[in-house]
Nucleic acid binder design. Sequence first.
DNA 1: CTGAAAGCGCTAACAT
DNA 2: ATGTTAGCGCTTTCAG
Lengths: 305, 305
Amino acid sequence: MSDVARAAGVSAATVSRALRGEPGVSEATRRYVTEVAKRMRYAIARDASSLAGGRRYAIAVLTADVGRGELLAGAEGALRQAGYDVLLYVVKEPEARSRFFEELPLARRVDGVLALSVDLGGAEGAALAGLGVPVVEVRDDGPREALRAAVGHLVGLGHRDVAFVVAGDVDESCDELLAEGGLRVRPEWSLWSSPTVAGGEQVVDALLDAERLPTAVISSSGEVALGVFLRLRRDGREVPGDVSIVSLEGLDLTRAVGITAVEVAWRERGEHAVDALLAGLRGESADREPPAVRLVVRNSSGPRV
Amino acid sequence: MSDVARAAGVSAATVSRALRGEPGVSEATRRYVTEVAKRMRYAIARDASSLAGGRRYAIAVLTADVGRGELLAGAEGALRQAGYDVLLYVVKEPEARSRFFEELPLARRVDGVLALSVDLGGAEGAALAGLGVPVVEVRDDGPREALRAAVGHLVGLGHRDVAFVVAGDVDESCDELLAEGGLRVRPEWSLWSSPTVAGGEQVVDALLDAERLPTAVISSSGEVALGVFLRLRRDGREVPGDVSIVSLEGLDLTRAVGITAVEVAWRERGEHAVDALLAGLRGESADREPPAVRLVVRNSSGPRV
DNA sequence: CTGAAAGCGCTAACAT
DNA sequence: ATGTTAGCGCTTTCAG
């Protein structure tokens, strides 16, 4: 920087101010300094800058699910644009995760933390809060919001007899949501499945065993939805002719096969989270709602026949 | 750090050496200092450390494909373990990409660069090389290696009449590879498809129009393979009874449906790339081959009937 | 609006 | 084996 200062015939302090857009520099000087810096291919040393200035220009981005690439990409783009570096931490494996939260290698290193689909536990959240920097979390929400959309869609198509397949753990019962939407709730239509295609196929077996086949199936998992789809077709049932299928999880897989699904605009969620974080960095408090989920109708769902 | 030094009754230099495992400190002192530091919850200021030491303890990880989450996760884990921070840069969109390579915001910021499925162009590679730090690239290789594995598998099962579907751009002709493996090469069995499920379904139509149906289909794309699979089944053909299918691209989708596919151990590729980078950082030159691709036989391929 | 000087918190020579 | 002394390259008062 002193080289640039000398070349521009000013002091280092002025170069610093000029390059950062700080007030207290005449426009002419700023323009000239900027030009000289560019000509000399000057790149500021972030380390020195951080050391002297106390800001780190870096955000830690934690994620437990690298499969959510779009979320990550959205956050990265927004952070980069805001002038922050992105320090990536994958906390997927349980050991890596607990080690991370014990050591917390973030102290004195970042200006903020973004936790993407990590679903922070209480102690974990507290640990991050202890860092003394803003923390924003994007949770992989339970299926409630998505379920509401799916139910609305099916009810609109005239369905009343709808089976609901849950894969993995769902904290709260969803029956009320189904009933709320005007669906008939039957215990034999509330099914659990392992979160795989095979699981979905087994679900169909269970369904066929019951006395009455639902006219539609909602699956919390995309893979399970595919399993249901394949098995029904294989059994000679038409989809959506005989049975409609809606997945609460939009996946490449479901999109590719053409299954109606609730899609989350992950990229936008990432950007939205960054907005909130930047607001926190400014001392403001963000409050805007994240982008809503969106149900995309494909050819696995149609009117009740 | 001076606080720790005072508390431990030594100089800051000794604390620095002790904490970094540098030689020149007695074991007893090191243990004691380490203990005091931990008790005081001392976290080193990386900025100051970098500034003084000249090393940055950070690696830039570029990626053009956030979908390759496992690759990224593998690299991140290995780098973290080696004590490096991971600075993530997503260079997917063309504008973002060209802007990145023009500005090259990496100067003076990282000790090395890892380019994951970026497929660096000549100028881009040169730009990175100009940084003066080691650069390691993991390319999304063309399908040649995978094709060899697929051909071997099918030939072993007795297939000779194999159609090859290419999705997207393949630079070189693959006919020779097919012939080399002992397959009959027919122009009408060399097909192009859009890289979608629908594309795969259309491919089947084209195949059925020809005078003779191949006994197996190799698809460079996983989605296309799925399309072929679904369409054949729908047309009443057995898979693999009548036609075997092998995908050169292992996807959640193909795994879920049970399609034989060439799988790349992406996580391991990431770790391997980090090994190479670390070697470069040490001044050594790495040369070990990356992990080979692996064909996973599922139930879409079987003996020729 | 600009410059001079004093650090930011470490590491690396050089002493001891 | 340990301490002392200079910086590393910026930002930030404080003067002018």
